[in-house]
Design a binder for these strands. Structure first.
Lengths: 235, 235
DNA sequence: GAGTGGTCTAGACCACGAG
DNA sequence: TCGTGGTCTAGACCACTCA
């Protein structure tokens, strides 16, 4: 049509974005229906939905099927640091589901145990108010596992066995559709995936944790002090 | 139509994905045109394009306007560790652009210097063969800056001044359109963004580095040894 | 059942790349 | 100029939510 420089969906997304950031659309508020917005901007519904998809992938709105589109509430920004999430907010609560299973495929490689080794899984979901904001799957060899989740990544960490090494692999990817629905985010919103493997002094893996954090409200910080260096200077 | 369990675009994307992973479609190969694929799968072109967008966001194909869709070449997986990218591949070369500028906005906060402090910027782009695979912007206060890029994140790191602390903030996000075109990736493919701030013994920030790595071919690894612990156990 | 978002269609027209 | 992908339209029909 007449938008060589900026696509319609970009223009509409920009307009809605400023309406959100200036507060004309408030957090938690419902947007007009897609049909209404489409006629308001004089575009077809697919184009309007395309614009909303942009905002969704930036974490600005939340689409709920059958209900509407909502301005996403601005939650506290989470920081993963030193094996725990900060700030340790009292408003945050974590639900934990414990289950027993046996090592399979990649999991046995991660824990360095044979296939079918008995494991305990802790599935942890962190909530801030209504909104889920973090997801963790923690695997522990069953003979090491307490019945209580050991230190489910919120608050201080106090492992029962002396650890020799903790390795954390951080990667960026899009969430699986399962993760997206659990965290109530778009499948187009990048997540930070952290795989943490803890090893004791004997070289045995005592815990593997898979964390998934929404990229728009979490990051990870690692600090190295040079006075007690090492563990870095290899190539 | 008849896909209540799996959408058409998912089905098509899955089919093409297996064709790629089984090698029926080879790396670098051009896919049939979207019109051809649409009639092949008996769907409309928007639906087919939707399927391709899924593959693109997973880094499996590359869309080139006016030319076609191509199976993305599988490059070596990069690992960011200890301030450098590994493996240190001889096939990788880095182009560096040096420029002089003055601290502004977030940059002055990052380096803890006043606004308009003279800085040197090193813009580094790592290539493997034809394909760019990493992007870094390194900022150094000009009075500390050598004329040569100090240690441009490939290979060993040998800072000239004794460092006291290195802090690395890792986050996951979608690339800016500028980053996406530089790295030749989709704007829907998540990237790993690493902000590294190096401080010397006096507390002065001697370097700030902003790294952007495609999420499908890079991750970061951090290792902590417990024998020389500390720097972790705070909450 | 009324209203919402989710998926899909069958086209039209524009912009880019190569000969 | 021709073939490619990029954007957009104006609908249709399905799935979900809530009264």
């Amino acid at each position: 049509m007449i938008q060589p420089v900026l696509s319609l969906r970009q223009t509409i997304a920009d307009d809605l974005r400023t309406q959100i950031s200036t507060g004309r659309l408030k957090p938690g508020e419902r947007l007009p229906s897609e049909t209404q917005l489409a006629s308001l901007y004089k575009v077809s519904t697919p184009t309007l939905r395309n614009a909303l998809a942009l905002l969704q992938s930036q974490g600005l709105i939340e689409k709920i099927h059958g209900k509407g589109n909502f301005v996403r509430r601005r939650l506290h920004r989470l920081t993963y640091s030193g094996g725990a999430l900060m700030p340790f907010d009292p408003a945050v609560h974590v639900t934990v589901h414990t289950s027993q299973l046996r090592a399979r495929g990649a999991l046995s490689g991660l824990l360095k145990v044979p296939q079918r080794t008995p494991l305990t899984e802790f599935l942890c979901i962190g909530h801030e108010g209504e909104s889920p904001h973090s997801l963790a799957r923690i695997y522990i060899p069953r003979d090491l596992a307490p019945t209580e989740p050991p230190w489910c990544r919120h608050g201080k960490t106090e492992p029962s066995t002396p650890l020799a090494e903790i390795q954390e692999k951080v990667s960026a990817r899009l969430p699986t559709s399962e993760e997206a629905s659990t965290l109530r985010i778009s499948t187009a919103l990048a997540v930070l995936a952290i795989t943490r493997v803890s090893t004791d002094a004997t070289g045995r893996v005592v815990e593997a944790a898979l964390l998934v954090l929404p990229g728009d409200r979490a990051d990870a910080i690692f600090t190295f002090h040079h006075t007690i260096d090492e563990g870095r200077a290899e190539a």
